[in-house]
Amino acid sequence: MLGKTVKGVLWWACLSALVFCDSPGAGVASAGEAIFSPPSEQSIPGGSLGDLVRKGEEIFTNTKKYAGHYVGNDLTCESCHLNRGRKAYAAPLWGAYGIYPRYRLKNHKVNSLAERMQGCFRFSMNGTAPAVDSPTVKALVAYSYWMSRGAPVGVKLPGAGMLHLTPPSRSPDPFSGKKVYEARCALCHGLHGQGRMSRGETAFPPVWGGKSFNKGAGFYNVGKLAGFIKMNMPLSKGDSLSDQDAWDVAAYVDSQPRPEKPAVK
């Protein structure tokens, strides 16, 4: 009798071990949602490459100070690429390095990562593009290379880019967007989209007006902005707005005045 009980227990133990053993792998494979985790800051190597990577990070987080020549507004790279370019669904750098060179409909060319970054400077930063072999771009590319350590080349990872939000049932409405904006966004970004300053430094980025991104930026696309808002805003409470609210807010923000798109080169 006792032996039987022991055996039963063993049996179940083995079965549960099997299930337990298998489940993480299976979950990862089926959901495909294992988010890549980039290396920690401490693992930046020494030497010239490490210096370049660190410089890239400085430019990334404090763009005006370290690459002010190319910046025409109050944003930094980190304004959109949250957590120093690490946050999934906020166009993380680790999701970008591996998929360039890539053909883009935007300019009908195969773009290298460096050329893509030039686009960021021209449109999102409303500034001028540094040359592809300028120290600024090299440092930023090196930073994304280092952050992508272990990510596969040429494969789009889960969490790369922005969330592709399915179009809403009701067409995005800037007027309801305004209400949501005033309730959920204005605290930080201001009633007039002006962002907020702290002792002369930009603390919250302006989301429209002369100091925000221009009409050539990716965020001027309502769908992209809605995907970003849905996953990331309000900061630390991502995924708390409904899809429709995210679309409406994005439509409202993009309906506000902002600098024109610079003429195509």
Binding site: C188, R196, M197, S198, R199, E201, A203, F204, L235
Partner: peptide
């Protein structure tokens, strides 16, 4: 991010 650079607050 919210409490300002160095934690100096964002008015």
């Amino acid at each position: 991010v919210c409490h300002g650079p160095n934690g100096y607050g964002v008015p």
